[in-house]
């Protein structure tokens, strides 16, 4: 199995950061394909994408606070279910088939893109 290189990780971070900063989401849609470049393990790329987005979300959240957006009450209400979901999702990531993961990701991206375009 190939390893994720440092320039590849930096490129994934830069692209993911741009999208996360501009749209508030979608960083992973750029980071995952860059990390997968060269035949890297899809599960590892998705896990790394989550880790990268974790750091970027902190930066973007600080930026949003400076811009006057701090929706703590909204987040507090959703968070307990979110933490439970994250535990289940991370456990499932270890077991899911790499090709199935990529195809689910593909369907999800096409659906999301189509929805934005038709809005």
């Amino acid at each position: 199995m190939n390893e994720i290189s440092k320039p590849q990780a930096a490129a994934a971070g830069l692209a993911g950061g741009l999208l996360n900063g501009a749209f508030g989401s979608g960083g992973g849609s750029a980071a995952v394909p860059i990390l997968e470049w060269g035949g890297n393990d899809a599960k590892k790329c998705h896990a790394m994408s989550v880790a990268i987005m974790f750091f970027l979300s902190i930066v973007s959240t600080v930026g949003n606070i400076f811009l006057g957006y701090f929706p703590l009450d909204t987040v507090k209400e959703l968070l307990p279910a979110g933490i439970l979901g994250a535990s289940v999702g991370a456990a499932a990531l270890k077991k899911v088939d790499n090709d199935l993961l990529r195809r689910i990701f593909g369907v999800f991206l096409i659906w999301s893109g189509g929805r934005i375009l038709t809005q």
Binding site: I4, S5, K6, P7, Q8, A9, A10, A11, A12, G13, L14, A15, G16, G17, L18, L19, N20, G21, A22, F23, G27, A31, M48, A51, I52, F55, L56, V59, S60, G63, N64, L67
Partner: peptide
Amino acid sequence: VLPYAAAAGSIGAVVGL
């Protein structure tokens, strides 16, 4: 490799905002 991604990504996030 995570620090490289986090450093480049932080720049990207600020530019994106």
